[in-house]
Simulated assay, not measured.
Amino acid sequence: MSEHVELRNATVYDGSGSAPVARNVLVADGRIEQVSPSPVGADRVLDLKRSALDRGSSTCTLTRSSACSSSPRSWGR
């Protein structure tokens, strides 16, 4: 069973050129499972305190540590 980690209070850049949004990001097995404006609940919660989460060409990059792979279409708004 994988550990689910919630990256709470992240500033998310979706790579589309749109303005960044504050979101809570659920990560499991190194992949984004859910992005929500509300807390999502997880085994572990990391409060990012508005650190940026930026989608790179094939991976997501967190300003303080690496995150995950995902398609921006799955990121929700």
Rank of each mutant, 00 (worst) to 15 (best):
E3M: 14
E3L: 15
E6W: 06
L7D: 01
R8D: 05
R8G: 01
R8I: 07
N9F: 02
T11W: 08
V12Y: 00
Y13G: 05
D14K: 08
S16V: 03
A19E: 12
A19W: 04
P20I: 05
R23I: 04
G30L: 03
G30D: 05
R31I: 10
I32W: 00
I32L: 12
I32M: 03
E33A: 11
E33Q: 13
E33S: 04
Q34P: 00
V35N: 01
V35E: 00
S36Q: 03
S36Y: 04
P37K: 06
P37R: 09
S38V: 13
S38A: 15
P39L: 11
P39R: 12
P39K: 09
G41Y: 05
G41H: 04
A42H: 06
A42F: 08
A42E: 05
R44Q: 12
V45H: 01
L46Y: 01
L46F: 03
R50W: 09
R50H: 14
A52R: 11
L53R: 02
L53S: 08
D54L: 11
C60I: 15
T61Y: 10
L62P: 00
S65K: 09
A67H: 07
C68Q: 03
S71T: 14
S74M: 10
S74F: 07
W75M: 13
G76A: 13
G76Y: 06
R77Q: 11
